Simulated assay, not measured.
Amino acid sequence: MDAPTGTPDGDADFDIVPPSAIRTGRATDAYFERTETTLDHAGVNPRVVAEVTRQQFPTGDFDVFAGVKDAAHLLAGLPIDVDALPEGQLFDGGPVLRIEGNYRDFAKYETSLLGFLSHASGCATRALEVRRAAPDDQVLSFGARHVHPSIAAMVERSALLAGLDGISHVAAGDVLDYPASGTMPHALMICFGNGHQEDAWRAFDDAVPADVPRVALCDTYSDEKDEVLRAVDALGENLDSVRLDTTSSRRGNFEHIVREVRWELDARGREDVGVFVSGGLGPDDLRALSPSVEGFGVGGYVSNADPLDFALDIVERDGEPCAKRGKLSGKKSVYRTPDGGHHVGLAGRQGPANGESLLRPLIRDGELVREFDLEEAAATVAEDAARVGFAE
Rank of each mutant, 00 (worst) to 15 (best):
Q55H: 03
D309H: 08
E224T: 03
K324Y: 12
R259S: 15
G348A: 05
V344P: 10
F372A: 05
E316A: 15
Y335P: 03
L161R: 04
D40Y: 11
A353G: 14
R230D: 11
A267R: 13
H148R: 04
A3Q: 07
A378T: 01
R251L: 10
I167S: 08
D318L: 13
L239Q: 07
D365Y: 02
E356F: 05
G10W: 00
A27V: 04
F91W: 06
C191Q: 11
F32E: 01
T337D: 01
D240V: 07
P338F: 12
V293Y: 04
L346C: 06
P179L: 07
L117D: 01
A378Y: 03
K108P: 02
R202I: 15
V170N: 03
V49Y: 04
D306I: 03
A203R: 07
K108S: 11
G43F: 01
A385K: 05
G326V: 07
R98T: 15
Q55T: 05
E255Y: 11
V48I: 11
T220A: 13
N102V: 09
S222Y: 03
E129R: 12
L74W: 02
G25E: 00
A171M: 00
F62H: 05
T28Y: 08
C322E: 14
L161V: 04
H146S: 13
E271Y: 08
I22D: 01
F254L: 12
V344C: 13
G295H: 05
G282K: 15
G300Y: 01
R47D: 14
S168F: 12
G88P: 05
D240A: 12
G300P: 02
M189Y: 01
A210C: 08
A200I: 13
P79F: 10
A124F: 02
K327M: 15
G60D: 04
L140Q: 07
D245P: 07
S249G: 08
C322F: 08
F276I: 15
E375L: 03
E237R: 11
H146Q: 11
G351E: 09
T380M: 04
G93F: 06
L90F: 06
H342L: 02
E371W: 03
F106P: 09
E227A: 14
L346D: 14
